[in-house]
């Protein structure tokens, strides 16, 4: 056998090993998700093997459960507010950080990044302590405040890094042709960054929807979906919960995949002129 052929064999063997190994990791990552979806459709009242038979009954039961449905609605509502607030806070700040010479820039970046890198537990405790002075906020307002703080943090970072790659000359060209700051934003910045903004909103929404740790501390009697699931886990896991989890998981996967596709597509340099 020639040396090249041997090398090629080694290379393809190496690639095969890589593929096999990566497949195992992906299996590891998706196995629990598959399990939840699987048992949401299984007739057995206590999840376990062997499977008893296909049913969609748990979905019907879940949709008839006022606690589950109420929690789903609450979570959706609160996550929407948090995501909207976070995006609204993040965009102007990211523009300034990316495009204006700013004093204390690294300090501000640390402040912005803080809630992402510190343990969520500590964040939750901090909120509990803060709420001691404002007990009226416990519950839904507190959850929105907390989730906005957390999601605004990486919303700013994502937008900031995206805007760093934004061609400044687009803005300058528009200004040069007579557009003032607001017009530049409406005519140039917004249309060109809209996908990134939507992506950031979706990520923030998904994250706020599923966030449990901080919400658990500040929720009071408010029941978000993760809190209801957590509480139900104290007992035997009902397939009803699997059914609603299935819906949420599929929605979360869809939203986050969509959002990330947008973020990554935006990351590529925009169509180069005359390439």
């Amino acid at each position: 056998m020639s040396a090249t052929a041997l090398k090629f064999r080694q290379a393809s063997a190496g690639s095969a090993a890589f593929i096999a190994y990566s497949a195992l990791i992906y299996l590891f990552l998706y196995l629990p998700i598959v399990v939840i979806v699987l048992f949401a459709f299984d007739a057995k009242p206590v999840p376990g093997l062997p499977l008893a038979g296909f049913t969609t009954g748990w979905f019907a039961q879940a949709s008839a459960d006022p606690v589950l449905v109420g929690a789903l609605l609450t979570s959706t509502k609160l996550a929407f507010f948090s995501a909207a607030l976070a995006t609204a806070l993040a965009m102007p700040a990211a523009m300034v950080l990316a495009w204006f010479p700013t004093r204390f820039k690294s300090l501000i970046l640390c402040l912005v990044l803080g809630p992402v890198v510190l343990p969520q537990l500590v964040l939750g405790l901090g909120f509990v302590s803060l709420l001691r002075g404002a007990p009226n906020l416990v519950g839904e307002p507190a959850i929105v405040l907390a989730h906005t703080t957390m999601t605004a943090s990486y919303a700013t970072m994502v937008l900031y890094s995206r805007l760093l790659g934004f061609r400044r000359s687009y803005i300058e060209a528009a200004m040069n042709l007579g557009a003032n700051e607001l017009t530049v934003f409406r005519e140039v910045i917004l249309p060109l960054t809209l996908p990134a903004l939507i992506a950031v909103f979706l990520l923030a929404f998904t994250d706020a929807f599923g966030e449990f740790i901080v919400a658990w501390f500040v929720a009071g009697f408010t029941k978000t979906l993760p809190i209801v699931i957590w509480t139900s886990l104290r007992q035997v896991i009902s397939p009803k919960v699997n059914a609603i989890s299935t819906i949420i998981i599929l929605a979360s996967l869809a939203l986050s995949v969509l959002a990330q596709l947008w973020v990554i597509r935006q990351a590529r340099p925009s169509a180069r002129v005359g390439a």
């Binding site: 061609r167 528009a174 200004m175 042709l177 002129v273």
Partner: peptide
Amino acid sequence: PPYRRDTAMVFQDYALFPHRTVAQNIAF
């Protein structure tokens, strides 16, 4: 500010708005 000056610039990278057509760019 730049938008109050009677100057127009041709940028090194042209800075043509990618979300607009050729005519829309000229019309801006």
